[in-house]
Design a protein around this nucleic acid. Structure first.
Lengths: 270, 270
DNA sequence: TAAAATAATTTCATATTGTGAAATCCCATT
DNA sequence: AATGGGATTTCACAATATGAAATTATTTTA
């Protein structure tokens, strides 16, 4: 009956409530009851009851215009979640340092399925660069794996299974440079492994350059990736190579700080 | 049966689930199942089922040590909640500007009841100052109303009812300078109204100086307060007065940017 | 200004869903 | 090998969540 309920029985209302919460994204931060009920496939009455509960706890609020929005308690919980995340805690200062050093925006991203089960990159931290006209991604945003430097970096160093998972879906083209075939994507991975970092040159958005390297644990598992992102006006290919070396060195430090003393995969020849 | 359920019937499991989520705070970001069940007063089995649902949706995760922590989807939702908050969106740049101008940390705070119904100040945005040894409050932290500049600023310009609400509880002393009697707190308010801003000189923590002013809507309602916070080594009373003038001017701009064209309460004589 | 249309909320009969005690499993210790 | 403390799973039961229908509020149209 339930669509995708990977959890146990006896949690229908919880799963439905979370489905409601996740409907609030950047494209539509405010919802009317009717629209939200339709979007989530819930009866209006049910959506109303669940939202009322969320509202009473401050996770959701009614805006001046009468619609529902995420509430201040959600901000509070999000802040705590960030601080409870060792990865993010450890990576934050190095990210700031990179941003200061290069003047560009830096991000920390992980691999997570979105609502529909499709793997995406999820931005869990970022520090804005010096330049005002930087590219602004946002904490909590999801980006496509195949069109981002972080996504490709995590694919290159992760298990084959993950690559297969990503290839289950169509590789949406965003610009003329986006990798859109399985062959193109696969072909890109060995050189990423060899160099220790991935780049993206206008593959998600024209004029946006990025370099990323993965954070790897002691067993070779990919935890996350960090990136440096900037506009092509300032960042040419040579700068991107330099950024690549920087992120690779930084992920090594971060892995070390997390307690992973196994050697970096980049250390190996093969 | 349920403790404080201000919501409708038919939401027991939702309210309980949120109670679980709110148990994850900075003092205890990681919980074992047993401890968490005890803390929230839920049967272990029930807590387990609810947590499993939360985990399946990524709002909670199991740490390497086997305990539960808030998960990455919580970070994502929190980020979206921040961006969906007009107040925070509008106030962010002015806060950054203040931090740059003064070199100290700035915050945006609102008044919210905590789990037990007691009014607290909730930090919903902050920008760190230039100095590394700044005072670090955190987004999502709750602070006592009577011992903070922001709390006092919101009290001074809010309805009497709110003051009464705060005085229902004991005014906990944090330092020798904390206002601990109703008379002391009440006495402080007129001068805050007259000057247009509140200060706190080591009232929450020794050596921490702060100045704050409220953001007021067109009907005179208190939406929030912003503050500048710094250590007494750098911030003396004269600097604090200057900070007070700065925050008062900034809240006026913010209210204006939010579309509130009624005049600022500070404009009035009385 | 009335009428119509649309959206939000409340009510309530029903059975599905959530409940939690008890049993079992899984690891650490000893 | 035995003990103990936690984490899971099972399952019988009924309390709780459900959602259609009725009502109320709000906006739009005539």
């Amino acid at each position: 009956m339930a669509q995708t309920n990977g959890s146990y029985a006896g949690t229908q209302s919880i799963i439905r409530t979370i489905r409601l919460l996740k409907a609030f994204d950047d494209r539509q931060p405010e919802w009317s009851l009717s629209d939200l009920a339709e979007e989530t496939g819930l009866p209006k009455t049910t959506a109303f009851r669940l939202l009322t509960a969320l509202e009473s706890e401050g996770l959701v609020r009614k805006s001046a215009e009468g619609g529902y929005r995420l509430g201040s308690e959600m901000i509070a919980l999000g802040g705590r979640a960030m601080r409870a995340n060792e990865l993010r805690t450890v990576a934050h200062d190095p990210l700031r340092a990179l941003a200061r050093q290069t003047g560009e925006t830096t991000t920390l991203e992980i691999l997570r399925p979105d609502g529909g089960g499709r793997l995406t990159t999820l931005v869990i931290d970022e520090t804005l660069g010096r330049y005002r006209v930087g590219i602004t991604q946002y904490i909590g945003s999801r980006l496509p794996v195949h069109a981002t430097s972080t996504g490709k970096a995590m694919l290159a160093f992760g298990p084959e299974q993950v690559v297969k998972e990503v290839l289950k879906y169509r590789l949406t083209p965003f610009t003329g440079k986006t990798l859109t075939t399985a062959a193109d994507l696969r072909e890109a991975l060995p050189s990423i492994r060899r160099r220790g970092f991935a780049t993206a040159e206008g593959e998600l958005e024209a004029g946006v350059m990025a370099a990323a390297a993965p954070i790897i644990d002691h067993l070779g598992g990919v935890l996350a990736a960090i990136s440096i992102v900037g506009p092509s006006i300032r960042v040419d290919r040579a700068a991107l190579d330099e950024f690549g070396r920087l992120v690779a060195a930084t992920t090594r430090d971060i892995a070390h700080a997390l307690g992973y003393r196994g050697h970096h995969p980049t250390d190996d020849a093969s």
